[in-house]
Design a protein around this nucleic acid. Structure first.
Lengths: 183, 183
DNA sequence: CAAGGCATGTAAATCGTTACATGATTTA
DNA sequence: TAAATCATGTAACGATTTACATGCCTTG
């Protein structure tokens, strides 16, 4: 259900093709939302049928024609209604790394530590990406100029950064706890 | 795919019914993993067909017969193989709260603040649950006695706690940033 | 000359939620 | 007396992923 609003939210920034939408998601929301092209194209068709977006076709040669989608006034209204709706519960989370750790009590100590060290490397790489790549990509994304959207984007990025930093601290402490443990 | 390992991981602790498995998940892993009964029952059937678990039926009256599932040696081996497999990428995350904020740049300042304050209340409640309810439930969960599993469970709980604390700090700062903002 | 970007999609399969169906016992 | 707990499941729907299909142009 959120994919619908994700696409409307992106198109609220400016007209785009399905391919552009995928790139925009990968460049800006990847660390808190993602979607495949095979999911985006049918969703766009459905949004058009509901008159929440409109499209115009731009002929090309050598490539399939470009279909440029734009949000309609009804679409903008629909998006706005969703944005105003309060989110009053903790979103359901699925964290396979934590799940694995949770069941790893029976493993040899060294294997648990290997797993935790691997996660630590992954998270440190992720933090670097959030501090270097993402800001650059957000800068170059369409209409990043307006003050208010830029603040929102920066807040989202800061969340990702804080999340990665927190996870790194937690992993460092977890490694210590497991190392110290008797048995 | 992870549901399969989740069930094996739980049954590695001791034999249980589908209903018990659901309760165990709700009591211990809820803040990083969950599943519905309608998903658990078919998954158990499939695991039994693959000889990774076995079941025995206990007649009852007034209620459907209990089906008590237990992990087989092959099942234990299967679980172990999964646990040893390194997780070398950032798990894909979906955070609808962050998604909404990301697109809220066009909303009146006060509406953004309402949304953030609502999230703050939700997260404070979540933190309390992680500090009070979850430890109590983990204590009463089957075989919580063994030292190594208990350490893993405590590490998972600490992650949830750190996550909630981080989110609260982030929301407090986000509210300040939006309040201060001109326009 | 292989890989990746550009540009569209469809089809099949899997994963997950919500609703339905049954029915006794216990608790508020 | 209504709701929750115990206990099993199925069916329908919706969301998501993976694989398939096409084909040119650019970059390394």
């Amino acid at each position: 259900m959120s994919l619908e609003y994700t696409l409307l939210g992106c198109l609220d920034v400016g007209p785009m093709t399905g391919y552009d939408l995928k790139k925009m998601l990968d460049d800006t929301t990847l660390f808190f939302w993602h979607a495949e092209l095979s999911q985006i194209y049918p969703a766009l068709k459905q949004l058009e049928k509901r008159k929440l977006i409109a499209s115009q076709t731009q002929p090309q040669d050598g490539k399939p024609d470009k279909k440029i989608h734009s949000i309609t006034p009804q679409g903008r209204e629909h998006l706005r209604a969703w944005l105003s709706e309060p989110l009053d519960s903790v979103p359901p989370v699925k964290n396979p790394a934590l799940l694995k750790l949770f069941f790893s009590g029976g493993l040899p100590k060294e294997e648990i530590l290997d797993q935790l060290r691997c996660q630590l490397a992954v998270q440190r790489a992720q933090l670097k990406r959030l501090q270097l790549d993402i800001p650059a990509r957000m800068q170059s994304a369409p209409l990043a100029g307006a003050a208010r959207p830029r603040l929102m984007w920066e807040l989202a990025r800061r969340y990702g950064e804080a999340q990665a930093e927190m996870t790194i601290r937690w992993l460092e402490e977890a490694i210590e706890s497991v190392e110290k443990e008797v048995g």
